[in-house]
Design a binder for these strands. Structure first.
Lengths: 211, 211
DNA sequence: AAGTGTGAACTTTTTCACAGCT
DNA sequence: AGCTGTGAAAAAGTTCACACTT
């Protein structure tokens, strides 16, 4: 148990860890104190073996013959994922998507705080979005410093995305979630995750035609 | 060349195919007639070997020593993905996210037409969203029949998602893109893809802490 | 000469199956 | 007796490298 903890966890494992966490939170909410790989895996929709393998990558926190203590395991995954830190998010783009995201409940939970929303359009600048006011993209550097932004969400049209990624990098923001429908050149040291709605639909179309 | 075409393409291949398609469309737009695995792979941000391997799964459409004809290859990928068919989309949930999605340009392109938007809230029912009017979820079956919906987008709170999936299944809609932040029990024959924003943020947090 | 198509090697991820704790 | 933790096996996915076609 002198941990094997690898430098970096596989992407697939990370995705599953967030699902385990969600299930564990549900268990906590309903007062369940202990669980097992079988029960938890079922709740998260995965196979128990991979769950145990995933958890073994973070070190061992279960008890053989017994299972896992819900709060302990949740706490441990939280720590591993960095969810004990405070995340301050700026949303770039105050169009429909940007505004929808700024109010998205999932963002508010787990220490992700939307602290700013920016746009280029003079129509939008100055207007209110929830309890924020849309600021000009030109003030990006200032906003990042003022609010100590450490995560940015890109909800702008494809054309604008690359230059904003570069600007974010220049201002020291290293983590970006992009909704721009195009591949981006990622500056060194930056982590960009993309959510691509048209890709999702196209893959659905393929499966739908199959059946 | 009497095709090896597998019954079903790997998920990772599908994702890349949509990227190739996007790059090919850009080439078409700028009048480029031919390309090669090297050029196309660079544009799509992948390695040329996997690109050729992916394309070989759909049968061979290149010319050795020469490369690929842009329009031909695009057409071929389009056919494979089922993008020659007409896709009629209903959006379930007319909150911020649902409304943002209904106007999302990526949906309008490539034959995905948003034909209906539904909600439970009497505040929203009857209000306009783009050129659609929000209809009551209670009329789901009727709307699906009337508009011949074949893809649904779930933009509702987690609690409502499962029963809507079941209702969609009952009305013969087999393809769903879900934004609900929870795992769903998928009725037989249905394909559900999930986009989970809090999972994305949590994975970003992990990587941000790493560095 | 150039660039595809593809077996073979390699790498990563998942699943199996069981030894080892409690 | 029960359930974890984990090597070993299997499967899936990626990259290499080169024969083959134009």
């Amino acid at each position: 148990m002198t941990e094997p903890e690898p430098r970096v966890l596989p992407e697939a494992t990370l995705t599953r860890l967030t699902q385990y966490l969600r299930a564990l939170n549900a268990f906590e909410a309903q007062g369940t104190e202990r669980t097992s790989s079988g029960v938890l895996a079922k709740e998260a929709g995965v196979n128990p073996a991979i769950l145990r393998k995933d958890l073994s990558l973070l070190g061992s926190y279960g008890t053989r013959g017994v299972g896992y203590v819900v709060t302990e395991l949740a706490e441990h995954i939280n720590r591993t994922l960095g969810l004990t830190k405070d995340w301050r998010v700026a949303i770039l783009g105050a169009g429909n998507l940007g505004r929808a995201l700024s109010g998205y409940a999932g963002f508010a939970s787990r220490g992700f705080k939307v602290r700013a929303i920016l746009d280029t359009s003079t129509n939008l600048i100055g207007s209110g979005v929830g309890d924020l006011v849309v600021e000009p993209i030109g003030t990006l550097g200032e906003v990042i410093r003022r609010e100590q932004i450490n995560i940015a969400v890109l909800a702008v049209p494809g054309e604008a995305a690359q230059e904003l990624i570069d600007a974010l990098a220049a201002h020291g923001v290293k983590s970006v979630l992009s909704f721009a429908p195009r591949p981006l050149r990622i500056p060194a040291g930056m982590i960009v995750r993309r959510v691509d709605l048209s890709t999702e639909l196209q893959i659905l179309a393929y499966h739908a035609v199959q059946s």
